[in-house]
Every structure is written in structure tokens, then in C-alpha cells.
Simulated scan of single mutants.
Amino acid sequence: MKCSFCDRQAVYFKRISGVAYCKNCFIKHVEDRVRWTINKGKLFDWNDNIVLAVSGGKDSVVMMKIVSKIERNFPDVKLTAITIDEGFNGYRVEGIRIAKKFSSMFGVEHLTFSFKDFYGYTLKEIIDIAEKKGSPYHPCTYCGVLRRKILNVKGREIGATKIATAHNLDDEAQTILMNILRGDIGRLIESFRIESQKYEGFIPRVKPMKYIPEKEIALYAYYSGIDLYSNECPFSKLSLRSEVRSFLNDYETRHPDVKFSIVSSFEDFVNKIMGKEDLMKIKLNRCKHCGEPTTREICRACELLEDLKIL
């Protein structure tokens, strides 16, 4: 099969569009899609101080490569990669190595912050305490909430104006479906409203990869010579997300582009039911323990740690 744009041999065929890509055209397709996402959502300004949340996995390294390439045209933009070390022996070490290697290669400053230094406990220690106390929360809950707090605090310390995460199309579709299954659509809509807005003390989150399927990111990483993270989180297969991921992947083999349909339909739904006046109604408080912005009296991170008696 020939590439739809040149005479080279195709390496990837996109079923939903019927378009075939050679290696070079495929790389350009992914980069153009990220550029389109940035422009469509007006994710970045010409003088932003952007934190790139880089775990060392393929998604975050690909994001760093593409965003750093795009932002070279904007010399007043500052990029800083931040990696969070949760404290799992034999898991995060490789990710930190990869993140450092490619940050240097792409000319991006790299910083690492650890759970141990920030909270006084590694994530493994926190999960062990939670299990002994019979906590109902999955390890992913502690990991996600506590990582986001570190990113916001450390990003604010270096003057960040945006935090870019490498959530891809699969991640977005999974999150929407998970919250529907949990009956938690209200929280999902609230997050959608808050994350992209600027509030005092809160750094807006942006997702330049949100319309790129995971399989295309993996192929882009392979053709770009990006190391693939061989270690998997020890808790990933225990989560609801793992079940939803398997379901969606299986369903999409029969119904191409279902993930994009889920994400775009949800965005249309939210945009239709709320306007700018709804955004202005959201009031963020200051957590009474740590002072971080929150819609609650106590932020979610402090609430989790308080329940474990380790705050």
C-alpha cells in the first residue's frame, strides 16, 4: 500500500478516514494534530511559562518532543519538565532516567520532586497505611490526587502559567465512561469547567494530546526513537480504568473512532449546558490545612491524608 500523500510505502492505515501514511507523513500527521489542538483550544500564549508533566512514559515524552518543537517559534515561552517520583523501587527509576535523557535532548529544563520530600511518605508507604486502615480508595486515587497537588505547588513556585499533561484520546474517553459508570457525571463536568480556567493559586491544565489515539502515540514514539517505558505500574491492572480500557479497545475494533465520538460528544454536551456565566459561579476556597485552592473546605489531598492520620 502506498502513502496517500506521496509515493512512499505506507506504514499506517487510519480506518476511520481511509488514509494511509508513510513514516514521514505519519509523523507530520501527529504533530499537525497536536498543533491543531493547541490552536483550537488556545492552549498556550506567546509568553507562557509551561510545565510539562513528564513521567518518562511514551505519551509524556512524545508530548515534550512535539510541544518543544512547536514552541521553538515562540522564544518568550519557557518550558520546564517536571517528573514526580512516587517512591516505587524499580518502577519510577527508569522513567526518571528516560525523562532526563529526552529533556536534555529536546533542550527542556528537567526537575524531579518526590512524594517522600513533599509528604514525608512514599506512595508505597501511604498505600500500605491505607490498606491497614481498610481505606475504600484504590491506590490510583492516592497517586492521582497527590501528584496533582505537587505539580500545582511546585509549578506555582517556578512561576508556571500552564501545566501540560499527556492525556491522550484513550485516556479522555476512559475517564468520561468511568465517571458515567460511577454515577459521578457532576464531578466530571465540574473538573471540565475548572481545569481550563485561571483562579488564584491554581495553574490551568491543558491537554495538547487529547485527540491523539494511544496507538498513534506509540507508533510515533517508535519512529522517533523514543525509549518505551518497559516497567508497568504495579497497581494499573487492578483499577476500573483497566477494565474500561479493555472494553473500549475491544469495542473500537468493531466500531472505529468510538473513542473520538465519546470525547467530542461529551465536549458538545458540556458546552451546550453551560456558558461563561456558569464558569464565573465557581468559587474556589483555600484549604484550611494547606492553603491550596479547592472547591471544598479541605482539599482532596489533605482529606485523604487526614483520613489516614498522617496529615
Rank of each mutant, 00 (worst) to 15 (best):
F118N: 05
H29V: 00
L177F: 13
C302V: 09
N152V: 04
V244D: 09
K237R: 15
V54Y: 03
I84F: 01
L219H: 08
S103E: 03
D117V: 06
Y199C: 05
I82Q: 06
N73G: 13
H255N: 14
V270S: 09
G95P: 01
D48M: 04
K42Y: 02
V62A: 15
L279V: 04
D59L: 07
D59Q: 10
G186N: 13
E86F: 07
N271Y: 03
V258S: 13
N47M: 07
V93R: 11
N271V: 00
I310C: 02
V270A: 12
R286T: 10
K133M: 14
D184H: 04
P208F: 03
S114A: 10
I262L: 13
P75H: 03
K276Y: 09
E216I: 06
E292K: 00
I66D: 12
T165F: 09
E252G: 08
I176F: 05
K78P: 01
C143H: 00
T80M: 02
E200A: 10
G90E: 05
L311F: 08
I176T: 05
P139C: 02
K133L: 15
E109L: 08
T294S: 08
S264D: 11
Y251K: 12
V77N: 08
G57V: 10
K124L: 13
I282M: 02
